[in-house]
């Protein structure tokens, strides 16, 4: 995957190690959030005031696309779909 490298200023080895530790903890938490979301009804807010709802399936590691099922759109229900994360502002669900 493309984990972005730390930006320049951090040359100290100790700092880099600490940075990696925090990065991995933040990332683990985010992946746990995706796991919690699997199979749930999720509301997606897209740009241009479009709101759609679907059952979340999976994400690619770069958080570029989400695979969803039963996507409810203003034009009808799409059985299977990929949503581009760059089109989204936010998404939400109940836990």
């Amino acid at each position: 995957t493309t984990i972005s490298a730390s930006t320049g200023s951090e040359t100290d080895a100790g700092n880099t190690e600490e940075e990696q530790r925090l990065r991995s903890e933040l990332r683990e938490r985010f992946l746990r959030n995706l796991i919690a979301m699997t199979g749930k009804q999720v509301q997606f807010k897209l740009y241009e005031k479009v709101q759609v709802q679907a059952k979340f399936g999976a994400s690619d590691i770069d958080i570029l696309n989400f695979q969803v099922s039963d996507l409810q759109t203003p034009l009808g229900v799409q059985k299977e779909a990929l949503l581009r994360c760059q089109d989204m502002i936010s998404f939400s669900f109940d836990l």
């Binding site: 985010f30 770069d62 760059q86 989204m88 502002i89 939400s92 109940d94």
Partner: peptide, 29 residues
């Protein structure tokens, strides 16, 4: 959390009836 790859923020609101509402804002937004 904040996802270090996409910079997305995971926001949690605890509900009175139990459980929670989770809102994720994409980093680019």
């Amino acid at each position: 959390t904040v996802d270090p790859v996409s910079a997305s923020v995971v926001l949690v609101t605890f509900l009175e009836k139990g459980g929670a509402f989770v809102m994720v804002v994409l980093g680019h937004a």
